[in-house]
Design a protein around this nucleic acid. Structure first.
Length: 141
RNA sequence: GCGGAAGGCUGGAUGGCCGCGGCGGUGACUCCACUGUCGAGGAAAGUCCGGACUCCAGGAAGAAACGGUGCCGGGUAACGCCCGGGCGGGGCAACCCGACGGAAAGCGCCACAGAAAGCAAACCGCCCCGGGUGCGCCCGGGGUAAGGGUGAAAGGGUGGGGUAAGAGCCCACCGCGCCCCUGGCAACAGGGGCGGCACGGCAAGCCCCACCGGGAGCAAUGCCAAAUAGGGACCGCGCGCCGCAAGGCGGGGCCGCUUUCGCCCCAGCAGGUCCGGGUUGGCAGCUAUAGCUGCCCUCGCAAGGGGGCAGUCAGAGGAAUGGUCAUCCAUUCGGGGGCGACCCCGGAGGACAGAAUCCGGCUUAUAGGCCUUCCGCGCGU
Protein backbone atom coordinates (compact mmCIF):
# COMPACT_ATOMS: atom_id res chain seq x y z
CA UNK A 1 0.00 0.00 0.00
CA UNK A 2 2.97 2.32 -0.20
CA UNK A 3 2.57 3.31 -3.86
CA UNK A 4 -0.77 5.12 -3.30
CA UNK A 5 0.87 7.27 -0.66
CA UNK A 6 3.86 8.20 -2.75
CA UNK A 7 2.01 10.85 -4.82
CA UNK A 8 1.04 12.68 -1.64
CA UNK A 9 4.65 13.05 -0.61
CA UNK A 10 5.59 14.05 -4.13
CA UNK A 11 2.89 16.68 -4.29
CA UNK A 12 3.93 18.19 -0.96
CA UNK A 13 7.54 18.14 -1.99
CA UNK A 14 6.69 20.16 -5.10
CA UNK A 15 5.33 23.11 -3.12
CA UNK A 16 8.73 24.75 -3.21
CA UNK A 17 10.57 23.62 -0.09
CA UNK A 18 13.10 21.58 -1.98
CA UNK A 19 15.92 24.12 -2.53
CA UNK A 20 16.43 25.15 1.14
CA UNK A 21 15.87 21.56 2.29
CA UNK A 22 19.29 20.57 1.05
CA UNK A 23 20.89 20.70 4.48
CA UNK A 24 17.92 20.90 6.88
CA UNK A 25 18.63 18.74 9.91
CA UNK A 26 16.22 17.38 12.51
CA UNK A 27 17.13 17.49 16.16
CA UNK A 28 15.12 16.35 19.16
CA UNK A 29 14.32 18.74 21.98
CA UNK A 30 15.54 17.43 25.31
CA UNK A 31 15.79 20.36 27.68
CA UNK A 32 12.93 21.55 29.83
CA UNK A 33 13.52 25.29 29.19
CA UNK A 34 13.11 24.71 25.42
CA UNK A 35 9.73 23.11 26.02
CA UNK A 36 8.66 25.94 28.27
CA UNK A 37 9.59 28.58 25.69
CA UNK A 38 7.68 26.71 22.98
CA UNK A 39 4.63 26.49 25.22
CA UNK A 40 4.39 30.30 25.26
CA UNK A 41 4.48 30.50 21.45
CA UNK A 42 1.81 29.92 18.80
CA UNK A 43 -0.14 26.68 18.78
CA UNK A 44 -2.74 24.88 16.68
CA UNK A 45 -5.03 22.18 18.02
CA UNK A 46 -6.14 19.17 15.99
CA UNK A 47 -8.28 16.19 17.08
CA UNK A 48 -5.28 13.90 17.49
CA UNK A 49 -2.71 16.34 18.85
CA UNK A 50 -1.65 19.94 19.49
CA UNK A 51 1.29 21.55 17.68
CA UNK A 52 3.30 24.41 19.12
CA UNK A 53 5.87 26.35 17.04
CA UNK A 54 8.45 28.90 18.07
CA UNK A 55 10.95 30.73 15.90
CA UNK A 56 14.35 30.69 17.51
CA UNK A 57 16.25 33.96 17.82
CA UNK A 58 19.07 34.29 15.30
CA UNK A 59 21.73 34.20 18.05
CA UNK A 60 20.61 30.91 19.56
CA UNK A 61 22.94 27.95 19.33
CA UNK A 62 21.37 25.69 16.67
CA UNK A 63 21.54 27.66 13.41
CA UNK A 64 18.86 28.33 10.84
CA UNK A 65 19.54 25.05 9.04
CA UNK A 66 18.23 23.02 11.99
CA UNK A 67 14.62 22.05 12.75
CA UNK A 68 14.07 20.98 16.32
CA UNK A 69 11.09 18.94 17.45
CA UNK A 70 9.89 17.75 20.85
CA UNK A 71 7.13 15.44 22.00
CA UNK A 72 5.05 15.59 25.15
CA UNK A 73 2.55 13.12 26.52
CA UNK A 74 1.48 13.83 30.07
CA UNK A 75 -0.12 11.33 32.40
CA UNK A 76 -3.49 12.51 31.14
CA UNK A 77 -2.80 10.48 27.99
CA UNK A 78 -2.85 7.24 29.97
CA UNK A 79 -0.46 4.70 31.42
CA UNK A 80 3.11 4.18 30.26
CA UNK A 81 2.14 1.96 27.35
CA UNK A 82 -0.41 4.46 26.02
CA UNK A 83 2.01 7.37 26.42
CA UNK A 84 4.81 5.59 24.61
CA UNK A 85 2.56 4.56 21.73
CA UNK A 86 1.21 8.10 21.33
CA UNK A 87 4.74 9.50 21.35
CA UNK A 88 5.94 7.01 18.77
CA UNK A 89 3.13 7.88 16.37
CA UNK A 90 3.82 11.59 16.85
CA UNK A 91 7.50 10.98 16.17
CA UNK A 92 6.60 9.19 12.96
CA UNK A 93 4.38 11.91 11.50
CA UNK A 94 7.03 14.48 12.39
CA UNK A 95 9.76 12.44 10.76
CA UNK A 96 7.71 12.00 7.60
CA UNK A 97 6.62 15.64 7.19
CA UNK A 98 9.17 18.01 8.71
CA UNK A 99 12.12 17.48 6.31
CA UNK A 100 9.93 18.70 3.42
CA UNK A 101 7.23 20.82 5.09
CA UNK A 102 9.06 22.21 8.10
CA UNK A 103 11.05 25.43 8.28
CA UNK A 104 14.59 25.85 9.47
CA UNK A 105 15.16 27.74 12.69
CA UNK A 106 11.90 26.58 14.21
CA UNK A 107 11.16 24.59 17.35
CA UNK A 108 8.08 22.39 17.07
CA UNK A 109 6.44 20.62 20.01
CA UNK A 110 3.76 17.96 19.49
CA UNK A 111 1.44 17.20 22.38
CA UNK A 112 -0.42 13.90 22.60
CA UNK A 113 -4.09 13.56 23.47
CA UNK A 114 -5.87 10.83 25.39
CA UNK A 115 -7.00 7.92 23.15
CA UNK A 116 -7.14 10.03 19.97
CA UNK A 117 -3.42 10.14 19.26
CA UNK A 118 -3.18 6.36 19.49
CA UNK A 119 -6.47 5.46 17.75
CA UNK A 120 -7.07 7.86 14.84
CA UNK A 121 -6.13 6.61 11.35
CA UNK A 122 -2.52 7.34 10.57
CA UNK A 123 -3.37 9.06 7.28
CA UNK A 124 -5.64 11.51 9.11
CA UNK A 125 -2.89 12.34 11.59
CA UNK A 126 -0.54 13.10 8.69
CA UNK A 127 -3.08 15.32 6.94
CA UNK A 128 -3.89 17.18 10.13
CA UNK A 129 -0.21 17.77 10.78
CA UNK A 130 0.27 19.21 7.29
CA UNK A 131 -2.70 21.53 7.85
CA UNK A 132 -1.36 22.59 11.23
CA UNK A 133 2.04 23.41 9.75
CA UNK A 134 0.46 25.52 6.99
CA UNK A 135 -1.63 27.40 9.56
CA UNK A 136 1.37 28.10 11.77
CA UNK A 137 3.61 29.14 8.89
CA UNK A 138 0.95 31.49 7.49
CA UNK A 139 0.50 33.01 10.94
CA UNK A 140 4.24 33.48 11.38
CA UNK A 141 4.61 35.41 8.13
C1' G B 1 -18.49 -38.43 28.82
C1' C B 2 -19.82 -34.82 32.86
C1' G B 3 -18.15 -32.20 37.17
C1' G B 4 -13.93 -30.97 40.07
C1' A B 5 -8.58 -30.51 42.33
C1' A B 6 -3.31 -29.41 41.72
C1' G B 7 0.84 -27.90 38.78
C1' G B 8 3.21 -26.03 34.41
C1' C B 9 3.87 -23.70 29.45
C1' U B 10 2.46 -19.97 25.98
C1' G B 11 0.60 -15.26 25.41
C1' G B 12 0.16 -13.83 17.97
C1' A B 13 3.09 -15.53 12.94
C1' U B 14 5.34 -14.11 8.17
C1' G B 15 6.67 -10.47 4.68
C1' G B 16 7.16 -5.36 2.15
C1' C B 17 8.34 -0.09 2.82
C1' C B 18 10.21 3.65 6.25
C1' G B 19 12.74 4.46 11.08
C1' C B 20 15.33 4.45 16.45
C1' G B 21 19.33 3.18 20.56
C1' G B 22 24.12 0.58 22.00
C1' C B 23 28.63 -1.72 20.26
C1' G B 24 32.13 -2.98 16.17
C1' G B 25 34.02 -2.11 11.10
C1' U B 26 34.83 0.89 6.58
C1' G B 27 34.90 5.80 4.29
C1' A B 28 38.82 12.99 3.97
C1' C B 29 35.95 9.10 10.10
C1' U B 30 34.29 15.49 16.13
C1' C B 31 28.81 16.17 12.27
C1' C B 32 27.66 12.37 8.58
C1' A B 33 27.14 8.01 5.19
C1' C B 34 27.28 2.75 4.42
C1' U B 35 27.59 -1.96 6.67
C1' G B 36 27.53 -6.03 10.52
C1' U B 37 25.37 -7.34 15.10
C1' C B 38 22.33 -7.06 19.54
C1' G B 39 17.93 -4.61 21.51
C1' A B 40 11.47 -5.40 27.03
C1' G B 41 8.21 -8.81 30.69
C1' G B 42 5.96 -12.93 33.16
C1' A B 43 4.58 -9.84 35.60
C1' A B 44 9.44 -5.02 33.18
C1' A B 45 3.85 -3.14 37.51
C1' G B 46 2.76 -2.16 43.10
C1' U B 47 7.43 -0.51 45.66
C1' C B 48 5.45 -4.65 50.38
C1' C B 49 9.83 -7.69 52.51
C1' G B 50 15.16 -9.56 52.07
C1' G B 51 20.08 -8.57 50.21
C1' A B 52 24.35 -6.67 47.03
C1' C B 53 26.55 -1.86 46.33
C1' U B 54 27.52 3.41 47.94
C1' C B 55 27.74 7.23 51.43
C1' C B 56 27.03 9.03 56.66
C1' A B 57 28.20 8.25 62.13
C1' G B 58 36.08 7.88 65.00
C1' G B 59 36.92 1.94 66.79
C1' A B 60 34.81 -1.73 70.10
C1' A B 61 31.21 -3.35 73.61
C1' G B 62 26.54 -2.60 76.06
C1' A B 63 21.78 -0.93 77.56
C1' A B 64 17.18 1.43 76.77
C1' A B 65 13.57 2.84 73.39
C1' C B 66 11.23 1.72 68.81
C1' G B 67 9.99 -1.59 64.81
C1' G B 68 9.52 -6.54 62.94
C1' U B 69 8.97 -11.94 63.21
C1' G B 70 6.27 -15.96 66.08
C1' C B 71 4.03 -24.58 65.86
C1' C B 72 8.69 -27.81 64.55
C1' G B 73 12.71 -29.19 61.26
C1' G B 74 15.28 -28.08 56.82
C1' G B 75 16.83 -24.77 52.41
C1' U B 76 19.16 -20.00 51.43
C1' A B 77 23.71 -14.60 50.99
C1' A B 78 19.22 -13.30 53.53
C1' C B 79 13.96 -12.98 54.30
C1' G B 80 8.02 -11.80 56.68
C1' C B 81 10.20 -16.39 51.07
C1' C B 82 10.40 -21.76 49.72
C1' C B 83 10.16 -27.21 51.00
C1' G B 84 8.87 -31.19 54.36
C1' G B 85 6.36 -32.44 58.87
C1' G B 86 2.87 -31.63 63.17
C1' C B 87 -1.73 -29.72 65.08
C1' G B 88 -6.63 -27.44 64.16
C1' G B 89 -10.65 -26.53 60.54
C1' G B 90 -13.36 -27.47 55.60
C1' G B 91 -14.52 -31.07 51.61
C1' C B 92 -17.50 -37.87 49.70
C1' A B 93 -12.47 -37.24 47.60
C1' A B 94 -8.23 -35.23 44.87
C1' C B 95 -7.03 -31.27 47.84
C1' C B 96 -7.54 -26.52 50.28
C1' C B 97 -7.30 -22.93 54.46
C1' G B 98 -4.90 -21.22 59.32
C1' A B 99 -1.30 -13.69 62.88
C1' C B 100 -0.64 -21.60 65.01
C1' G B 101 4.44 -18.89 71.43
C1' G B 102 2.47 -17.45 76.59
C1' A B 103 -4.20 -16.23 79.68
C1' A B 104 -1.75 -20.16 87.56
C1' A B 105 3.46 -12.51 85.86
C1' G B 106 0.19 -8.41 85.89
C1' C B 107 -3.52 -4.75 84.06
C1' G B 108 -7.88 -4.33 81.08
C1' C B 109 -12.37 -5.82 78.36
C1' C B 110 -16.58 -9.44 77.68
C1' A B 111 -21.68 -5.29 73.78
C1' C B 112 -27.03 -6.99 73.10
C1' A B 113 -29.88 -10.53 75.46
C1' G B 114 -30.14 -12.76 80.14
C1' A B 115 -31.72 -13.86 87.06
C1' A B 116 -26.51 -14.15 86.67
C1' A B 117 -20.47 -12.79 82.44
C1' G B 118 -16.03 -14.46 86.60
C1' C B 119 -17.53 -14.96 91.95
C1' A B 120 -20.22 -17.54 92.40
C1' A B 121 -25.08 -16.98 92.20
C1' A B 122 -30.92 -18.73 90.92
C1' C B 123 -35.79 -15.90 86.78
C1' C B 124 -39.30 -19.83 85.36
C1' G B 125 -38.99 -24.53 87.51
C1' C B 126 -38.29 -29.28 90.68
C1' C B 127 -38.47 -31.29 95.83
C1' C B 128 -39.21 -31.34 101.33
C1' C B 129 -41.23 -29.08 105.87
C1' G B 130 -44.84 -25.69 108.31
C1' G B 131 -49.29 -22.73 107.79
C1' G B 132 -53.77 -21.16 105.09
C1' U B 133 -57.47 -22.78 101.56
C1' G B 134 -62.92 -20.75 97.98
C1' C B 135 -59.20 -27.31 96.60
C1' G B 136 -57.53 -24.30 91.07
C1' C B 137 -53.73 -22.99 94.56
C1' C B 138 -51.45 -19.20 97.92
C1' C B 139 -47.84 -17.63 101.93
C1' G B 140 -43.33 -18.61 104.82
C1' G B 141 -38.69 -21.51 105.68
C1' G B 142 -35.20 -24.75 103.48
C1' G B 143 -32.76 -28.08 99.64
C1' U B 144 -31.38 -28.22 94.42
C1' A B 145 -29.09 -26.96 89.48
C1' A B 146 -31.51 -32.25 86.02
C1' G B 147 -35.25 -29.39 82.65
C1' G B 148 -36.94 -24.32 80.25
C1' G B 149 -35.20 -19.64 78.54
C1' U B 150 -30.80 -15.79 76.99
C1' G B 151 -26.12 -15.68 74.79
C1' A B 152 -20.22 -16.26 71.04
C1' A B 153 -19.54 -18.20 75.94
C1' A B 154 -23.48 -20.22 81.89
C1' G B 155 -18.36 -23.65 86.44
C1' G B 156 -16.94 -30.59 82.20
C1' G B 157 -20.00 -34.23 78.30
C1' U B 158 -22.90 -38.98 77.52
C1' G B 159 -25.04 -43.15 79.92
C1' G B 160 -26.09 -45.73 84.47
C1' G B 161 -26.59 -45.89 89.76
C1' G B 162 -28.37 -42.89 93.51
C1' U B 163 -32.03 -39.35 95.77
C1' A B 164 -37.55 -36.12 98.63
C1' A B 165 -35.77 -33.69 94.16
C1' G B 166 -30.94 -33.36 92.65
C1' A B 167 -25.72 -32.92 92.27
C1' G B 168 -18.55 -36.22 90.32
C1' C B 169 -22.51 -37.72 95.39
C1' C B 170 -20.72 -42.78 93.23
C1' C B 171 -19.32 -45.75 88.61
C1' A B 172 -17.95 -46.57 83.13
C1' C B 173 -16.26 -44.19 78.70
C1' C B 174 -14.73 -39.44 76.60
C1' G B 175 -12.56 -34.63 77.84
C1' C B 176 -9.21 -31.89 81.20
C1' G B 177 -4.83 -31.45 84.65
C1' C B 178 -0.36 -33.72 86.80
C1' C B 179 3.36 -37.74 86.78
C1' C B 180 5.79 -41.78 84.24
C1' C B 181 7.00 -44.89 79.93
C1' U B 182 7.54 -45.60 74.50
C1' G B 183 8.36 -43.52 69.36
C1' G B 184 10.26 -39.01 67.02
C1' C B 185 16.22 -34.32 66.11
C1' A B 186 11.62 -31.59 67.21
C1' A B 187 6.57 -29.74 66.90
C1' C B 188 3.85 -33.83 68.57
C1' A B 189 1.69 -38.76 68.89
C1' G B 190 0.55 -43.42 71.50
C1' G B 191 0.14 -46.04 76.20
C1' G B 192 -0.17 -46.45 81.66
C1' G B 193 -1.13 -44.40 86.51
C1' C B 194 -3.16 -40.69 89.69
C1' G B 195 -6.72 -36.58 90.55
C1' G B 196 -13.58 -35.84 91.08
C1' C B 197 -12.66 -31.19 88.09
C1' A B 198 -9.62 -27.00 90.37
C1' C B 199 -7.33 -23.15 85.94
C1' G B 200 -14.17 -19.39 81.02
C1' G B 201 -12.78 -16.36 76.59
C1' C B 202 -9.97 -12.24 74.19
C1' A B 203 -2.82 -11.46 73.51
C1' A B 204 -5.87 -8.85 65.39
C1' G B 205 -6.18 -4.36 73.86
C1' C B 206 -1.78 -3.43 76.75
C1' C B 207 1.72 -6.88 78.01
C1' C B 208 5.46 -11.16 78.84
C1' C B 209 9.06 -14.46 76.42
C1' A B 210 12.47 -15.81 72.33
C1' C B 211 14.95 -14.20 67.97
C1' C B 212 16.26 -10.24 64.27
C1' G B 213 17.26 -5.02 63.03
C1' G B 214 22.45 1.66 63.11
C1' G B 215 20.59 5.48 59.23
C1' A B 216 19.85 7.00 54.23
C1' G B 217 19.49 5.74 49.31
C1' C B 218 21.92 5.23 42.14
C1' A B 219 18.29 12.09 42.23
C1' A B 220 23.40 7.03 46.43
C1' U B 221 28.35 8.22 45.32
C1' G B 222 33.07 9.64 42.63
C1' C B 223 35.54 12.69 38.88
C1' C B 224 36.00 16.98 35.29
C1' A B 225 34.98 22.14 33.45
C1' A B 226 33.25 27.52 33.49
C1' A B 227 31.42 31.73 36.20
C1' U B 228 30.97 33.51 41.09
C1' A B 229 29.04 34.43 46.78
C1' G B 230 32.52 33.89 50.13
C1' G B 231 34.52 30.06 54.09
C1' G B 232 38.89 27.41 55.84
C1' A B 233 44.15 25.82 56.28
C1' C B 234 49.41 26.80 55.97
C1' C B 235 53.60 30.36 55.65
C1' G B 236 54.94 35.31 57.82
C1' C B 237 53.97 39.00 61.91
C1' G B 238 52.02 38.40 66.65
C1' C B 239 50.56 35.21 71.06
C1' G B 240 47.25 33.32 78.30
C1' C B 241 50.34 30.41 82.17
C1' C B 242 54.59 26.83 83.16
C1' G B 243 59.21 24.94 80.96
C1' C B 244 66.28 25.88 78.63
C1' A B 245 63.72 23.01 74.92
C1' A B 246 60.58 19.11 73.11
C1' G B 247 56.20 19.98 75.07
C1' G B 248 52.68 20.45 78.97
C1' C B 249 48.68 23.05 81.75
C1' G B 250 43.76 25.14 81.03
C1' G B 251 39.27 25.15 77.84
C1' G B 252 36.33 22.82 74.04
C1' G B 253 34.85 19.01 70.45
C1' C B 254 34.16 13.82 67.99
C1' C B 255 28.95 7.41 67.03
C1' G B 256 21.41 9.84 69.42
C1' C B 257 22.80 7.48 75.01
C1' U B 258 26.50 4.88 78.50
C1' U B 259 31.45 2.71 79.28
C1' U B 260 36.23 2.23 77.47
C1' C B 261 40.01 3.15 73.95
C1' G B 262 41.60 6.65 70.63
C1' C B 263 41.72 11.30 68.05
C1' C B 264 41.25 16.55 66.94
C1' C B 265 40.95 21.93 67.75
C1' C B 266 41.93 26.69 70.29
C1' A B 267 42.85 35.14 69.88
C1' G B 268 44.04 38.83 65.87
C1' C B 269 46.04 40.77 60.98
C1' A B 270 47.94 43.61 55.52
C1' G B 271 50.23 39.95 52.14
C1' G B 272 51.35 35.08 49.56
C1' U B 273 50.04 29.88 48.46
C1' C B 274 46.56 26.05 48.55
C1' C B 275 41.90 23.81 49.59
C1' G B 276 36.82 24.24 49.29
C1' G B 277 31.87 25.20 46.88
C1' G B 278 24.80 26.36 46.14
C1' U B 279 23.55 25.78 40.84
C1' U B 280 24.17 24.13 35.57
C1' G B 281 26.48 20.78 32.02
C1' G B 282 29.53 16.44 30.89
C1' C B 283 31.83 11.63 32.26
C1' A B 284 31.82 7.49 35.52
C1' G B 285 28.57 4.37 38.65
C1' C B 286 26.00 1.05 34.26
C1' U B 287 25.29 -3.61 33.61
C1' A B 288 28.75 -10.63 34.15
C1' U B 289 28.62 -13.14 37.69
C1' A B 290 24.99 -14.98 45.88
C1' G B 291 25.07 -14.59 37.34
C1' C B 292 21.81 -16.24 33.43
C1' U B 293 20.43 -19.99 29.44
C1' G B 294 20.67 -25.11 27.46
C1' C B 295 22.20 -30.21 28.21
C1' C B 296 24.20 -33.98 31.46
C1' C B 297 26.08 -36.60 36.09
C1' U B 298 25.33 -36.96 41.30
C1' C B 299 23.21 -36.38 46.76
C1' G B 300 18.29 -35.29 48.81
C1' C B 301 11.00 -37.26 49.83
C1' A B 302 11.37 -31.97 48.51
C1' A B 303 12.97 -26.85 48.58
C1' G B 304 17.79 -27.22 47.23
C1' G B 305 23.24 -28.73 47.37
C1' G B 306 27.86 -30.51 44.70
C1' G B 307 30.07 -31.06 39.80
C1' G B 308 30.92 -31.14 34.21
C1' C B 309 30.35 -29.17 29.08
C1' A B 310 28.73 -25.22 25.78
C1' G B 311 26.99 -20.24 25.07
C1' U B 312 26.93 -15.19 26.83
C1' C B 313 21.96 -12.15 26.10
C1' A B 314 19.08 -4.30 26.42
C1' G B 315 21.70 -0.39 28.83
C1' A B 316 18.37 4.69 27.49
C1' G B 317 18.81 9.37 30.01
C1' G B 318 12.32 14.58 27.61
C1' A B 319 14.28 8.31 28.19
C1' A B 320 15.99 3.57 21.98
C1' U B 321 13.78 -1.50 21.51
C1' G B 322 9.30 1.26 16.69
C1' G B 323 5.53 3.29 12.64
C1' U B 324 2.58 1.59 8.71
C1' C B 325 0.44 -1.82 5.12
C1' A B 326 -0.75 -6.78 3.43
C1' U B 327 -1.53 -11.98 4.19
C1' C B 328 -2.23 -15.84 7.67
C1' C B 329 -3.75 -17.43 12.66
C1' A B 330 -7.18 -18.00 16.41
C1' U B 331 -11.93 -14.72 18.46
C1' U B 332 -16.59 -12.61 17.47
C1' C B 333 -20.95 -10.39 14.66
C1' G B 334 -24.18 -10.33 10.15
C1' G B 335 -25.65 -12.87 5.51
C1' G B 336 -25.64 -17.42 2.48
C1' G B 337 -24.88 -22.91 1.60
C1' G B 338 -24.76 -27.99 3.74
C1' C B 339 -28.36 -33.57 7.41
C1' G B 340 -23.57 -32.63 9.64
C1' A B 341 -18.15 -31.86 10.82
C1' C B 342 -17.69 -27.40 8.13
C1' C B 343 -17.30 -23.99 3.84
C1' C B 344 -18.01 -19.04 1.22
C1' C B 345 -18.76 -13.44 1.42
C1' G B 346 -18.49 -8.85 4.35
C1' G B 347 -17.20 -6.27 9.00
C1' A B 348 -15.00 -5.59 13.93
C1' G B 349 -11.32 -5.91 17.19
C1' G B 350 -6.06 -8.77 19.16
C1' A B 351 -5.33 -9.90 27.43
C1' C B 352 -2.53 -7.35 31.23
C1' A B 353 1.04 -4.29 30.31
C1' G B 354 7.09 -0.81 28.68
C1' A B 355 13.40 -2.09 31.56
C1' A B 356 15.58 2.98 34.43
C1' U B 357 21.57 0.43 39.79
C1' C B 358 21.24 -4.91 40.12
C1' C B 359 19.59 -9.59 42.28
C1' G B 360 16.07 -13.18 45.60
C1' G B 361 10.86 -13.22 46.96
C1' C B 362 5.77 -11.65 47.82
C1' U B 363 1.37 -9.30 46.02
C1' U B 364 -1.75 -7.54 42.27
C1' A B 365 -3.43 -7.41 36.67
C1' U B 366 -4.09 -10.82 32.57
C1' A B 367 -8.40 -12.16 26.19
C1' G B 368 -7.37 -16.63 24.31
C1' G B 369 -4.72 -21.30 23.61
C1' C B 370 -1.99 -25.81 25.13
C1' C B 371 0.00 -29.81 28.33
C1' U B 372 0.62 -33.18 32.68
C1' U B 373 -1.08 -35.64 37.12
C1' C B 374 -5.03 -36.75 40.35
C1' C B 375 -10.38 -37.18 42.52
C1' G B 376 -15.89 -38.09 42.33
C1' C B 377 -20.07 -39.73 39.40
C1' G B 378 -22.01 -42.17 35.04
C1' C B 379 -21.45 -45.58 30.78
C1' G B 380 -18.92 -49.64 28.19
C1' U B 381 -15.51 -53.97 28.54
Amino acid sequence: MTPPEAPIVGKDASTGDMPPAVSLRLEVLRKRPDFQRAARAAHVAKPGFVVQMRERRSDEVPGQDVIRVGFTCSKKVGNAVARNRAKRRLREIARLALPTEGRGGMDYVLIGRKDKTADLPFAQLRDDFSDALKTLHARAK
